[in-house]
Structures are given as structure tokens and as C-alpha cells.
Design a protein around this nucleic acid. Structure first.
Lengths: 352, 352
DNA sequence: TTGATTTATTGGAACGTTCCATTTAGTAGC
DNA sequence: GCTACTAAATGGAACGTTCCAATAAATCAA
């Protein structure tokens, strides 16, 4: 069976009574080898317990078959979905994606990127960590390695981006809320170090303006982009002299937090206060009440990002077009059952 | 700045006016080099835009600094947590973990394992996909590569396992339900191709027996280990001639599904029917009602698995002791507010 | 001054592949 | 029987590192 020391193609060659070159050809599935010889070699490969050394091969070969995906928060199912979408595409292209988590830490991200490069990846798909410094990708760019950003972008970067249409999503959601009769709205969660925040907030503001909501009735409460952040945001909003009656939340986690906080105060989400989330994670559909949310199709964006990456690798370029994914508002119950909410919400709004 | 072709240590050497060996020594942080020389070299490294080629280095060096983690379902936050726990440990050991997802697909798993091995990983931490064939790890074992299983085990394997005490967790949860006065119980979700299923079901059965519940009152409904599966299980259970009044669920997802289905039927989880989950994912705490669940500390298990792996690599062995992690029941609201449920539950039980 | 010792640097031979240029056999054409 | 070709297999030179043994330069002891 297997020997202690790692078997090489020389061991296979000896076992099969051929030369190392022949073995190499067989490994690559070359048609130049006589079938009987090939199967003799394949048997030897089994017998010596050989494992291919890709590192050695990459020394000569132009490019490797692994690409790195760097994700800022793997515990967020939203990003996990993104990863899964990419995997689907890469798998069928014979490429193995290695995932690394940065846990939203730029220092960790630096290490991870370095390691991936050293490993000789063919390309990188990155959802950059919050607080990534502008220069973080310079080394990679000068190395000529294809990179695409997914979900998030960096302020000044020329690296192609695959992301949902955050502005439009927020716009749609806000119009929906205003259409339900709300006249004093709030944007919950997020902070200005994220480009995504500005995009979503921008959509919110534009909708308010075009729908005739005064600026002083379009409130903003920054906060963590988590359940906990959502709870805090809601507390802050209801403590205002003139509280809003509806909130667009930075993401679904914030929305869940806000709904939780409403319940704690004896208020019913969708009846006493309208909530819209963003991302439409799987949980949104199953929540009580089911959360109205902006669906961004993260798995689809992951697939798209993977395709772009494949193109870039294939045409050995480092440039590509941005891709802004369509979004759509999934209306469920958290803004009230259609018209009925209108009166309640308006009532509460004017009562406050 | 950077040249087109990849820079090597020879380029650095030329730039700095030293030999390749000197550069190599600097890269490894050897103290043999005069500090001024070292900084001259480091400057050259920057100037030529060098990226270290670990593949080439591994050709000579004994072992690499990357370990692979193979996860069966990354979209399950439970497994994502496990990954995050491992990462914490490896990071401080200067090891980079690459994560690969198998999406519960044994074929995909095979590919992923192969790829990781070819990449020359120093070890493998695996949460095996459902339906993994007994021989799937033979190649890896004969290659002498350290492997540990996390969360799940294979029926016959001698590979060390890091997993929670499933039997005890299920036992504790069941005793809790019985203590609340339930006399007809059901185990929801999972299927017998998973070792974990047998462990948890075993704990459930043992608790029933020791607490004097007749076998015919300890029901089992198999099903998907997802929200959807939980919904189906509950429907099945309530359709029985003599329905149970309490359920221990295979995991939290099943529990959420069951609670959802209860609500749809106008029944209140925790009042009309008691539910216990398993895994205690973050969501459990925030659900309405908050889910009583068996906490397994997946991040902690991840850390433990990482430590075991480090030991194995260090002592170049392929054997290690199993580690069964402590569990504890986190009592929340889904089995009713302490005693009060008792009467209701018993009442419903005898009425049915 | 000479040799011994220490400190800093260096050349060369691996490591396990790929790929090009050859060689070797076998087959056809004339 | 000779050349020309094709098919199959092979040797050798890379690829970018590490590490050992060797060298060169500087310091010290006598």
C-alpha cells in the first residue's frame, strides 16, 4: 500500500515501468499515450497512494485552478448565500473556491489576502471588510491579479463591483411605506463608513423628496447592523418628541431587532408601526409577522460575480464592467395588510 | 513599479545587489543577516512588487501553513459558527484556514478533499456530508494526513471526533419536558442516515424510559432538518389519533418550523404545545416565543477541534482522543412559563 | 604576522512537476 | 531496401524556493 514518504511521479514511473514524462502525460489526460500504457500507469498511481502536488505543477504551469473568496462575515446567512452562489458556478468550471472569513476585520483581511496570493490563486472575489483602507488592494492590483468586489464597494476603487441596486431598493421600499399613508419615516441602522449605507439612505431620501415628505420628516437613526442595533434604533425613535410611524431598516437583522423591540413595548409590527427590511434573508418569510423586505438575490449575485471572474481570468484582464443586480420589494405583513394599516398608522402618526 | 512577469527572489537579489540566498534568509526573518542588508532587501521587495510563492517553498519545506476546513452546510449559521471558532485559534497560530463547502453532497466533498490535499494542506477538519461513504477518507488516511471530524462522525471510522454530547443533550431536554407534566412526547426531524440522529434519539428514548413513559407514548416523526421539515413533522403529529403534547426537535430549524405550524393552526407554542430545539442558534433567543434549546457551544467546539488539529500536526500523528463537548439546556418560553404550562399541557393531553 | 574564530554572505543541489526537443519503433510509399 | 512519415515514449531543462556547505571578511589571540 502506501509508503511513508510522499509518492511522486517517479515512484509511479518505476512501479509502472515507464518514464516520469509518460506518467505526467497520463495525469494530464493526454491522448498521446497508448490506452494500455495509460491504464497500467493509472493502476500504479493507485498502488503507490499518489497525491498530485499542485504546488509543484504551478511552478511551471501558467495558472492555478483555485480562486479565493474573501467574505466579511460568514455567520450572516446573506453572505453565506453569496458564497454558495459562487460555488455553483465555479464547480462546473472545474475551479475550486477557497473561502476565507475576515470577520469584518481589516487586519485579518490583509493577512487573508496575502495568504491567498501566496497560495497562487487565479483570482479573488472579495466582500471587503468595513474600514478597509484605500490602499489595501494596491499590491494585488499591481500584481495583475483579477479581483472583483461583491456586495460592497470601496469609495475610490476601480475594481469591478457586483452589487444589488441599493438605491433603487431603498427607493421602492420607501415609496411603499409612503403609499401606505405614512408621513413621518425613519431610516434605521448602518453607519457612514459603509458605501452601501449611503446608497440605501440615498434611495430613502430621494423617495421622501419626490413623494413630498419634508426633510424634517425623513429621520435617520444610525446603529449597528444587527438585531441588537435594531432594538436600539427603535428605542431611540420612539423616544423622540414626534416619533415616526414607519421604518426602512438597513438590513433584515435590524428589522428583526426593531420588531422585537416593538413587541416588548406592546406594539404590534405591521399594525402600530410599519417595518421594511433589506436583503430578504430566508428568515424574513417565516418571521411573525412575515417581514416585507427588499430582495437582492444574493445567490444570483454570487453567480454573476463568479462569471465575471471567469471571464477576467480567461481574457487575462483585470478590468470588467460593474454589474448592478435588480432588486424587488417582497411585500408581506410587516407594513400591515394592505389598506387597513393606513388608517391605524396615520392615526398613530397624527396622535403623536 | 511592478513588472509584468511575476517577480522572484532573483529579481529582488539583483535590485538589492545581494544573492538569492540572502533574500531567502531575509524572507524567513533569519537573524544571520546584518540589519542594514536586511532593510535594503526589504526595500527591494517592496520596489519589485514581489509576492511570495508558497507552492515553490513547500517543495522544499516539510509542511505548509494552511489547513482545510470542509463544511457540509455553510448557510446553516450553526456550522458557520463552528468555522468561526476554528478560525480564532488558527489565526493566532499563524495558520490560515481555507473553508470549503460541500453543500451536503458527498461527490462535491470528494472533489473538495482532493483539491485540498493537492494544495498540500497540513491537516483537515471535516464536518462530513450526509451519505459520506465509509471509504471516502481512506486515501487521506493512507497519506498520513491528520484529519478530525467536527460535529458529525462516520459510523465505522477511527478518525478523532469533536462533537457535542448529543445523547445527554436530548436526555436533559426530554426530562425537562416530562418534568413539565407531558406524558406523550414526540421526537421531530432528522433521519437515520445521520449518526447524530441516533445519538439524539437515543437520549430522548432513554429519558422516556427512565421517567416512566411507555414506549408507545414516545413517538418519532422523521423529516428534513429544516424549517420546512419541522412544519411537516408537526402536521403529521397533530393528525395522529392521539397527538403528543410536546416535541423535542432534531435542531432549532425544525423547532422554528414546528412553532410556525402551530401558529398556523391557531395554537400557541409554549401554551398549547411544548417545543424544545437543539443547537441553540442565535435566533433561538429572539424568537417569539423564545425557544428553549440545548446549547452546544459550536464556536467552542470549533476552537477545540482546532487545538486538537494543532497538536496532531505538531506531534505528527494521525491519532487523537475524541472530545465530547458539554451541553446545557437553555430554558426559555417555548415550553411554557414554568409550572403554569403543566395543567394546560396535561389538559390538552388527556383531552385528545 | 599567522592562524583560529566568528560573522555575514553566497553558490549549488535539491524539491515535484511540465513541456519541448529527441529518440525509438513501427508503418507506408516507392 | 531506403526514405518519409506517424505514433508513442523519453530525457533534460526549467519553474521559485530552501538549506547545506563553502567562502569571504572581519576580529581576536598569540
Amino acid at each position: 500500500m502506501a509508503n511513508r514518504a510522499k509518492a511522486t511521479i517517479f515512484d509511479i514511473a518505476r512501479e509502472a515501468g515507464v518514464s516520469k514524462s509518460t506518467v505526467s502525460l497520463v495525469l494530464q489526460g493526454s491522448g498521446l499515450i497508448r490506452p494500455e500504457t495509460a491504464s497500467k500507469v493509472r493502476k500504479a498511481i493507485e498502488d503507490v497512494g499518489y497525491v498530485y502536488n499542485r504546488g509543484a505543477a504551478n511552478l511551471r504551469k501558467a495558472h492555478s485552478n483555485v480562486i479565493g473568496m474573501v467574505i466579511n462575515d460568514l455567520t450572516n446567512p446573506f453572505f453565506a448565500e453569496l458564497a454558495v452562489g459562487m460555488e455553483r458556478v465555479f464547480q462546473s468550471a472545474g475551479i475550486v473556491p477557497f473561502i476565507a472569513n475576515t470577520a469584518e476585520n481589516p487586519v485579518r483581511q490583509e493577512e487573508v489576502l496575502k495568504s491567498l496570493m501566496e497560495q497562487g490563486v487565479a483570482g479573488l472575489i472579495v466582500s471587503p471588510a468595513r474600514g478597509t483602507t484605500p490602499g489595501a488592494f494596491r499590491r494585488i492590483e499591481t500584481a495583475g491579479l483579477p479581483v472583483v468586489f461583491a456586495m460592497r464597494r470601496l469609495p475610490e476603487s476601480r475594481i469591478p463591483v457586483i452589487a444589488p441596486d441599493n438605491h433603487r431598493g431603498a427607493y421602492l421600499a420607501t415609496v411603499h411605506l409612503i403609499g401606505k399613508g405614512h408621513r413621518r419615516l425613519v431610516f434605521f441602522g448602518g453607519s457612514s463608513d459603509l458605501v452601501v449605507y449611503h446608497e440605501r439612505l440615498g434611495g430613502f431620501r430621494e423617495a421622501c423628496q419626490t413623494q413630498g415628505i419634508a426633510d424634517r420628516d425623513a429621520l435617520v437613526v444610525e446603529g449597528e447592523t444587527s438585531r441588537r442595533g435594531g432594538i436600539a434604533c427603535l428605542e431611540t425613535a420612539l423616544a423622540m418628541a414626534e416619533p415616526p410611524t414607519a421604518a426602512l431598516c438597513f438590513n433584515d437583522a435590524v428589522a428583526f431587532g426593531a420588531m422585537l423591540a416593538l413587541r416588548k413595548r406592546g406594539l404590534e409590527p405591521g399594525v402600530d408601526f410599519a417595518i421594511v427590511g433589506f436583503d430578504d434573508v430566508a428568515e424574513a418569510e417565516h418571521y411573525m409577522p412575515a417581514l416585507t423586505s427588499v430582495a437582492v438575490d444574493s445567490a444570483g449575485l454570487g453567480e454573476r460575480a463568479a462569471h465575471v471572474m471567469l471571464k477576467m481570468i480567461q481574457s487575462r484582464t483585470t478590468r470588467a464592467e460593474d454589474h448592478i443586480g435588480a432588486v424587488n420589494l417582497v411585500v408581506r405583513e410587516s407594513c400591515g395588510p394592505d389598506r387597513r394599516i393606513r388608517n391605524r398608522a396615520v392615526g398613530l402618526g397624527s396622535a403623536a
